[in-house]
Simulated scan of single mutants.
Amino acid sequence: MLGVVGNIVLAIIKYVVGVMSGSKALVADAVHSASDVAGSFAVYIGVRAAKQPPDRDHPYGHGKAESIAAIIVAVLLFLVGIEIGKSSIESFFQPIEAPKAFAIYAVVLSIVVKEAMFRYKFKLGKRINSDAVIVNAYEHRSDVYSSIAALIGIVGAIFGEQIGAPWLVYGDPVAGLFVSILILRTAYKLGKESIHTTLDHVLHEEDTEEMRKAVLTFPEVKKINALHAREHGHYVIVDLKISVDPYITVEQGHKIGKRVKEKLLQVDNVHDVFIHINPYSEEDDDSSQGVD
Rank of each mutant, 00 (worst) to 15 (best):
residue 139 E to I: 13
residue 80 V to R: 13
residue 286 D to W: 05
residue 17 V to E: 01
residue 47 V to Q: 15
residue 157 A to W: 02
residue 12 I to A: 14
residue 131 D to I: 13
residue 268 D to E: 02
residue 162 Q to S: 00
residue 10 L to W: 06
residue 78 F to W: 12
residue 34 A to H: 03
residue 278 N to F: 12
residue 257 G to F: 11
residue 268 D to W: 05
residue 144 V to N: 12
residue 55 D to Q: 10
residue 122 F to C: 11
residue 117 M to I: 07
residue 77 L to T: 13
residue 85 G to I: 06
residue 141 R to S: 09
residue 88 S to A: 11
residue 189 K to T: 12
residue 9 V to R: 14
residue 139 E to D: 14
residue 256 I to Q: 05
residue 41 F to Q: 05
residue 251 E to V: 15
residue 184 L to Q: 01
residue 25 A to M: 00
residue 110 S to Y: 00
residue 131 D to W: 15
residue 228 H to T: 08
residue 148 I to W: 03
residue 224 I to R: 09
residue 72 I to W: 07
residue 290 G to F: 10
residue 150 A to S: 05
residue 211 M to R: 11
residue 70 A to I: 08
residue 81 G to V: 07
residue 88 S to Y: 08
residue 178 F to A: 03
residue 65 A to V: 06
residue 22 G to S: 04
residue 47 V to P: 11
residue 65 A to T: 08
residue 108 V to F: 03
residue 49 A to Y: 03
residue 243 S to N: 15
residue 13 I to E: 00
residue 18 G to N: 08
residue 267 V to C: 11
residue 72 I to T: 15
residue 71 I to S: 03
residue 141 R to W: 13
residue 260 V to I: 15
residue 132 A to R: 13
residue 287 S to N: 09
residue 178 F to I: 02
residue 264 L to Y: 14
residue 254 H to T: 07
residue 202 V to Y: 10
residue 51 K to D: 01
residue 38 A to C: 08
residue 280 Y to F: 15
residue 160 G to M: 12
residue 81 G to I: 04
residue 136 N to H: 13
residue 171 G to D: 03
residue 183 I to K: 13
residue 119 R to V: 05
residue 191 G to K: 11
residue 27 V to K: 11
residue 222 K to L: 06
residue 80 V to C: 11
residue 178 F to S: 01
residue 130 S to A: 10
residue 245 D to Q: 05
residue 163 I to T: 15
residue 74 A to V: 04
residue 188 Y to M: 01
residue 106 A to W: 09
residue 228 H to N: 10
residue 18 G to Q: 04
residue 249 T to A: 04
residue 173 P to A: 08
residue 170 Y to H: 06
residue 259 R to N: 15
residue 16 V to N: 00
residue 179 V to L: 10
residue 1 M to W: 12
residue 85 G to V: 06
residue 118 F to N: 05
residue 142 S to Q: 04
residue 237 I to C: 13
residue 286 D to F: 02
residue 31 V to D: 11
residue 144 V to F: 09
residue 32 H to S: 00
residue 57 D to P: 12
